[in-house]
Computed example of a mutant assay.
Amino acid sequence: MWIAKNITKRNQAKSNCINAAISSANNSEITAVGRDGVSHLTIAAPSGISFSPKIDENAVVLKTESGDVCVGTIMDRVNPNDCPLPGELFLSNKNGTATIKLMADGKIEICGDVTINGKSV
């Protein structure tokens, strides 16, 4: 037991990842407040995906040599139907009124007003 506790403590001390609350977000700057104070963040996301976290959302912040990076946010799921199954992707807007779900079986489920090439569908 003593060995396990000491290994855990040592590994926690080496962690360069923190949880911080987003305090402001706009096109040019994201700031978050965590245990180390205020961080000015850049966003890391998979290629082709762009996002800006909501104010007061909990961000996962990775401390790097070149600055702090938001690698995502802690998901807060109110509706269990929003949880994707393995192999699925779920996207939603700020208040959840528009959603896109890419399903594992190849189907696409879209909820909200849809516009394609400037025309409502």
Rank of each mutant, 00 (worst) to 15 (best):
T97M: 02
A13W: 13
E88M: 04
S52W: 03
N26K: 08
A32V: 06
V69Q: 11
T8G: 08
S39P: 02
C111F: 12
D105E: 12
Q12E: 15
S66T: 13
K101Y: 06
I43K: 05
A104S: 12
S47A: 09
E29D: 06
G72W: 13
K5D: 13
L85S: 09
E88A: 05
I22C: 06
T99R: 13
N11D: 13
S66E: 14
N58R: 06
T64Y: 10
N19V: 15
S47I: 00
M1K: 01
H40S: 07
N81H: 10
A13N: 15
V61Y: 07
H40E: 06
G87I: 00
H40G: 02
R10T: 15
A98S: 10
N95D: 08
G112N: 11
T73Y: 14
L85F: 06
N93L: 04
N27W: 03
A32D: 03
C111W: 08
A98G: 05
K14H: 13
N16P: 05
P53S: 07
G118C: 04
V114G: 07
C111E: 09
T99D: 01
G67I: 12
G67F: 11
L102W: 02
N117V: 01
Q12K: 14
P84C: 09
T97E: 12
A4V: 09
S23Y: 08
N16H: 12
C70L: 13
T97S: 12
I43T: 06
